Simulated scan of single mutants.
Amino acid sequence: MANEITFYTNPQSRGGIVRWMLEELDIPYQTQVLEYGEPMKTPEYLAINPMGKVPTLTHGDRVITESAAICVYLADVFSDAGLGPNNDDERARYYRWMFFAAGPMESAVVNKKIFGELAGEDKHQGVLGYGNYQLTLDALSGAIMSSPYIAGERFTAADVYIGAQLGWGLQFGTIEKRGEYQEYFGRLSQREAFQRAEALDEALQKEASET
């Protein structure tokens, strides 16, 4: 199987999470920018990702979609970079909080952005997978304050995924500006790979605005 990686993205999408992960790995990859609308719905792209969304990653003949899954896949396949868990204690926290962020956290934040505070939210906690918005943020706060990084003492792919979500939420006001969130994301945003990823996507946005 060819080892070529192709990254399908739009600079104004969750592709920013995957871009950061790729830059942390410091591996070669090709970028295919897709505009929203028809370019994401062509038969050729739907054959790769039937959802017609980005990001998508192809690695030779393999196709990986969903930002959290892409981050986990890359950490596993390129394990020499040390972005996956090193032991069972890290592994437990790594998977727990990676998929907490991909499930309950994303649902809570998106529902609040679209619908506001859900009426009778407490009454529907058994139906809503995240319980309620405040409960979700409180759980994440506890995890962030318990150790320097989400899986423990070391930066991992889980920090890429969770850090990117927090950064976006803090910027656009969908997540409360809690001190622990700002301190955590502030440290992560100083990483060279994060800054390279931001610069690459900013350049793509500028290019798009000039065409």
Rank of each mutant, 00 (worst) to 15 (best):
W97I: 10
A151W: 04
N132H: 12
A92F: 13
Y149F: 14
L128D: 05
V110A: 13
G82Y: 08
Y95H: 15
S141K: 03
G131C: 10
N132L: 11
G103I: 05
V127N: 03
Y94R: 02
Y95C: 04
Y133E: 04
N87E: 14
E117S: 08
G142C: 01
P85F: 08
L140W: 02
E121F: 01
A108C: 06
E153D: 15
E117Q: 07
E106Q: 15
A119F: 12
A69F: 09
S141P: 00
F115M: 11
Y130R: 08
A139V: 03
I150H: 08
A75T: 05
C71V: 15
N132Q: 09
A68N: 11
A75C: 10
F155T: 07
N86G: 14
A92H: 06
E66Y: 04
P148I: 07
S141G: 08
D88A: 13
R154P: 01
L140I: 03
L135G: 15
A92G: 11
A81V: 02
L135M: 12
Y149E: 03
E106K: 05
G82Q: 05
L74T: 00
L137Q: 09
A143K: 07
A81N: 03
G129Q: 11
A92W: 06
G103Q: 06
F115I: 00
F99C: 02
A139G: 03
A68S: 14
D76R: 13
G152H: 06
W97Y: 15
N86Y: 05
T136A: 08
R93I: 02
G84L: 05
G142I: 07
G120D: 07
K123C: 00
E117R: 03
E90K: 02
G152Q: 08
G131V: 12
F115T: 04
G142Y: 01
Y73R: 10
A68K: 07
C71G: 02
V127I: 14
A101K: 02
Y130H: 06
F78E: 04
V77T: 14
A139N: 07
S147G: 11
T136I: 05
K112C: 07
G120R: 01
Y94L: 08
G82E: 09
M105N: 08
K123N: 09
N111F: 11
A81P: 01
E153R: 06
D89S: 13
L135W: 08
S67E: 11
K112S: 10
R91H: 04
T136C: 12
A81W: 02
S141V: 05
L137F: 07
A69P: 13
L118Y: 08
D88H: 13
V127R: 09
V72N: 12
P148R: 02
N86V: 00
V72Q: 13
E153F: 02
A108V: 09
D76H: 10
A68V: 12
S141T: 10
N111L: 10
C71P: 09
G142H: 04
